Computed example of a mutant assay.
Amino acid sequence: MNDACHGVERSHTLSNGDFSRLSQFIYDELGIKMPIAKKTMLEARLQKRLRSLGIESFHVYCDYLFSSQGIENEMVQMIDLVTTNKTDFFREPDHFDYLLQNVLPEWVNRHPGKKLVVWSAGCSTGEEPYTLAMVLSQFADSYPGFNYQILATDISTRVLEKAKLAVYDEERVIPVPMTLKKKYLLRSKDKSCQRVRIVPELREKVRFRRLNFMDGDFAMREPIDIIFCRNVIIYFDRPTQEKLLNHFCVHMVPGAYIFMGHSETLSGLDVPLTMVHPTVYRKLK
């Protein structure tokens, strides 16, 4: 695919018209608001795809993207580029302390013998679900019979592939406490390799799946006891946040918890959730 076959002049800038087409699609399909202030960012990210496809015009790229062939072959690639994936091991550590000290002991007392189902919604490259797996496995050491399963979802196929591989640069695991590093991280026999991998017994506890929050059906296998959806809804407008959180609640058992990012608030939203700790909420019924 090249300019000659489309008769289009070389153009490295994204026109306002094509930006409008793209931003409207991103909002309709992903629920993410893309104001004109983000035009330069979107342009820079999409340049990679234009180079990869041999397309030198954003207009031609948009025409291709919205064609039947583009919808089938290119749409996922574009979504991967425009979604933000920032995460760390033990990010916002107060949440994991509250989970370990308050939520889990109470849950075990109320549900003896039941498997705990946790959902990491917007899991990115896997640091959050694997952090959860470490915390839950540590808890299981003190509570024989305790069992859990983690569902980890993201809209980006690119980050999900990295998450499934579970290999991280050593600098990425600096926040992991040393006792947990020794127990849950594997180092290469090659001393020059500055990478680690999550141990198999934790990888087996995490099930990764691609999921778009705007899809009508989340296709959950079983009700959810705890959701971590942190620093995700900040990319949505308030009506979309309210709709999404109510959709979450449909899949949560009564008394289930949802952990939000410290920069997020549910104030003013009509949702059946009450705050029990800063940025930690519980389903009312």
Rank of each mutant, 00 (worst) to 15 (best):
V280C: 05
A256V: 06
T84H: 09
Y184E: 02
C123M: 08
D94M: 13
G126R: 03
Q241P: 04
S263F: 00
S142W: 02
V253R: 14
R282I: 07
E170D: 08
I71T: 14
I198W: 01
V118F: 06
R51D: 06
E204Y: 08
R282Q: 15
D215P: 01
V206S: 02
P278T: 04
D63G: 08
A166D: 01
H12E: 14
K183Q: 10
L99Y: 11
F25R: 14
H95N: 11
V82S: 09
A140F: 01
A163N: 07
Y143F: 10
S11A: 15
Y130Q: 06
G122H: 06
T274Y: 13
A256R: 04
L81H: 05
I233A: 01
T153A: 11
M260S: 00
K205F: 01
S67L: 09
P200E: 12
G216N: 12
W119P: 01
L42A: 07
T84A: 09
A256C: 05
N109S: 13
Y130N: 05
S263W: 01
R203S: 06
L100I: 10
R230H: 00
I79K: 12
R207Q: 12
I155R: 11
D94Q: 15
H262P: 00
K33S: 13
T240N: 09
R209D: 07
D28G: 08
Y235W: 05
E171V: 15
M275E: 15
V232R: 00
I226C: 06
D88T: 10
C249F: 03
V76D: 13
F89G: 05
N231Q: 03
P239N: 10
A44E: 00
F146W: 03
F259R: 00
K283I: 06
R197V: 08
D215I: 04
Q69T: 14
K164L: 05
L42F: 06
